[in-house]
């Protein structure tokens, strides 16, 4: 009864935190450079946020259910490499056209799903810490892509790339496909998290997996599904990524996992699980993208300090939330 007044305040403050951070960045950007709010720049930022964003939506579920996946960056690089290899080798048989692109997409989705299932199975069936399992698979995928590329870069056949390119660059009504797909993934993700039994079960497991078990929740299956879903979304992100530059190398997707995790946490999802929100993750992704965008658009600080500014803003965003949570 003493907490009746506390609950609503807590909620609204933790909601306001990240939104406020995003608004502050937008205002700062608009003041520092008039092109910041230009249509082109907005589209650029949203499109480049899409890869991390799509992955981060999947990561929100994994973290909410009390897990973690460090392998997504390497996984994306590996799937991109695999996709390019398959498409290049199928090219003579299929020719440039929709079938070969569909084949590539199928490879990406199947590869992602399999990779995610593999992580999830090892974690749930063998009961090994997610941190260790995905740290291991991170190394495996990273070195597999280096091996596939023979230490260099895998490049999509030039003519095929030109054909596939519109998937990144064009879209409907001037909004490119990555943004549309990102938006779709976010809307679906938000609905699943908020309004389905699966989302509720994720939060319950992350909150206390014993309680979930004793409440007849199929804990292992839900956990497995979060990793498989994340893998699938990595595949979706890769489908959007490959047409951009048409290449994959050992340098592809480096540190994406940390960016995705950072975005999830900035958005207000609890790192140790139990509470997650997809829309918050979107805000987290946008905050991260906008910081580097603004730093590029201005000569405000030495580029050597870009990392420091990013780090400081990430910590600040989370501190703001924590303080509002602790407030009262």
């Amino acid at each position: 009864m003493t907490d009746t007044t506390k609950a609503p305040i807590r909620l609204s403050m933790s909601v306001i935190g990240p939104v406020l951070g995003l608004l502050a960045l937008i205002v700062a950007g608009a003041l520092l450079n008039p092109n910041f709010l230009g249509w082109d720049n907005i589209v650029n930022v949203l499109a480049r946020s899409a890869f991390i964003g799509i992955i981060a939506v999947g990561m929100t579920f994994v973290i909410t259910a009390g897990g973690l996946d460090l392998s997504v960056g390497s996984m994306a690089a590996f799937i991109a490499g695999l996709m390019i290899l398959v498409m290049n080798s199928a090219l003579p048989a299929l020719g440039v056209g929709i079938p070969v692109v569909l084949l590539g997409m199928a490879v990406a989705l199947a590869g992602g799903l399999l990779a995610g299932l593999l992580n999830g199975l090892i974690i749930t069936r063998l009961g090994i810490e997610a941190f260790i399992v995905t740290l291991g698979s991170m190394g495996i995928y990273r070195s597999l892509v280096t091996w596939l590329a023979d230490g260099g870069t895998l490049s999509l056949d030039f003519s095929l790339r030109s054909f596939y390119q519109p998937v990144y660059y064009s879209g409907i009504l001037g909004i490119s496909w990555p943004i549309l797909v990102f938006a779709l993934v976010v809307v679906l993700g938000e609905i699943v998290m908020r309004a389905t039994a699966f989302g509720r079960h994720c939060a319950a497991i992350g909150s206390n997996d014993q309680v979930a078990k004793y409440s007849s929740v199929r804990v292992a299956r839900v956990r497995l599904m979060t990793y498989a879903g994340l893998g699938l979304l990595v595949g979706v992100a890769t489908i959007m990524y490959v047409p951009r530059l048409g290449s994959a190398s050992a340098a592809t997707g480096v540190l994406w996992e940390l960016e995705a995790i950072a975005a999830v946490i900035i958005g207000g999802t609890v790192l140790k699980g139990g509470f997650g929100r997809v829309w918050g993750t979107v805000i987290g992704v946008l905050i991260l993208s906008l910081i580097s965008n603004i730093l590029n658009l201005t000569d405000f600080v030495s580029p050597y300090l870009n990392g420091a500014i990013q780090g400081a803003i990430i910590i600040l965003a989370v501190v703001l939330q924590r303080e509002s949570k602790a407030g009262t």
Partner: peptide, 28 residues
């Protein structure tokens, strides 16, 4: 406290956790 109820959640989420399928019509 550690196996029966989610202490960080509200009454509604706790009440329906065990029989969530009853309330699942695609969406809850």
């Amino acid at each position: 406290k550690t196996r029966g109820l989610l202490l960080q959640k509200g009454m509604r989420e706790n009440l329906t956790l065990q029989a969530l399928a009853k309330f699942d019509r695609g969406l809850i």
